[in-house]
Every structure is written in structure tokens, then in C-alpha cells.
Simulated assay, not measured.
Amino acid sequence: MTPADRSTKAEVRNRPGSPLRLRPKASASLILIDRSRPSPHVLVGRRGSGHAFMPDLYVFPGGRRDNRDHALPFSQDLNPSVVDLLLRRCPPSMGASGARALALAALRELHEETGLRLGPTLAPDVPYCPDLSSLRFVARAVTPPGAVRRFDNRFFATFVDEASIDLNNLRESDELSDFRWLDLAALTSVPLPEIVAVIARDLKISLESDPSLPFGNDVYAYTNRNGQFLRSRL
């Protein structure tokens, strides 16, 4: 590498807003599990080719947490064990309300991207107040440095039947299309980001160990350090 090349690389590294300096944004995803089949299936949708982040790959519904998520209504709160897990490796200022905002972000994104809601819709004129009580916290993953977008993402999971989800409301959106119910035993049927495939495989192992997916199950964090993929228990 020439001195000029080193200088250019340093400029890119120190340039405000460059991918190498992006700070991960808080985000959340929801894994819907259909256990009515011989083996568990999870819902994924394809991101459009125009997306800068993970184009044309199949992902779980989800997205960035917004400030408004802290004030969204809900009918029932998270299980206390889930709150405790969410607060691990987090600053004390996050608190239970911050943990709840992540779950509400996942449910808001689910509705925006798929049309699906957790809990029954009482009437057209009754505001949607999602039920958070069936959500499990199953994984946390931070996008590696150098990506065009970086997220500190929490993955929640719930069973379709337990959460009273009406799958007849499933519809495509600008964010996700071509929905598939992916068999956890056949993950190669669609192109997945590596982290989604890893989390899906770990979810399969957890369900094999205990099909009820207990609320206090071990949660793993997935990060990268010095170019190496790391998996650790929260």
C-alpha cells in the first residue's frame, strides 16, 4: 500500500458519517413461529432490490426503533423475565420503558411491513393495543463495522396461535414482499443474511430442547471483533 493509499484510507475512516464510523441504531425484529406443522416454520419476507441494506434477501419483519415507540399503547406488558434479559449489557438509563419500546417497535414494524397484529382487533374504531405478554427475547445482534447501515437489533419471537394472530391479514408492503413460511429444518430454500440463518438455527435448537420456548431461556449476543464473528451468552 502506498503512502497515498494509506492517506486515503485514513480520510475515509475519519470522515463523519462514513460506514466505518457509523454507530449502531437500536432496532427490533419479530420472529413468528407456526407450530401447526410437523416442524416449526417462521415467517420471512424479501427486501426489495432498491434497499441499500440487505437487498433481495429474506429477513424477519422489523426495523429501527423510533422515539414514538416509547409512547405506543399496549394491552399487556412483557413477561418480567423478558424485561430482565433485555436490560442485560444495557445502560441503567434504559429501564423497563426502554425495553418495552424495543418490543413495541418490533410490533409496529410487523404491522407496517406485513399487516399482521398481535392480539385480536376488538372493533374498527378501537385503537390497536398490542399484547406483549407472549413475546420471548431470543437474540441480540450488532451489524459489523463497515456496513452501509448498522443496527443493534433485538430479536423477539412468539407463536402464531399463542399471540392470536390472524394470518388472513398478511399483505405485502414496500418493505417486504414474497412472504415465505420457512421450515427451520430447511434454511437453504431462500437466500438469507448470515445472521438470520445463524439465529434461525439457534432457534431450532432451542425449540428442540423445549418446544414451549420458555421466557427465561438463554439469550445469545452476536457481534464482530477484529473481523471475527463472536457468539456469547447475555
Rank of each mutant, 00 (worst) to 15 (best):
R100W: 00
L167C: 12
R117Q: 14
D174Y: 09
P145H: 04
S133Y: 08
A141G: 12
Y128F: 01
G98M: 05
F151T: 01
N168Q: 12
N169A: 02
L182K: 00
A157M: 05
R171V: 05
A105K: 03
D166C: 08
A163R: 05
L167D: 03
R150Q: 04
V126A: 07
T121S: 15
D174N: 14
S133C: 11
L167N: 06
L184R: 09
D125P: 01
S97I: 04
R171N: 09
L102R: 12
F137N: 14
R171M: 03
S97Q: 14
V142E: 15
P191V: 06
I195V: 10
T114N: 01
V198M: 11
T121A: 13
L132C: 05
G115D: 09
F151R: 08
N169C: 07
P144Y: 11
P124Y: 02
P145T: 08
V126R: 09
L102H: 13
A141S: 14
G119E: 08
A106E: 12
A101L: 09
H111A: 08
P127E: 14
S189Q: 13
T114S: 04
E172K: 00
R136E: 05
E109H: 15
D174M: 08
D166G: 08
D174G: 14
L182M: 07
L176G: 02
D183C: 10
P191L: 01
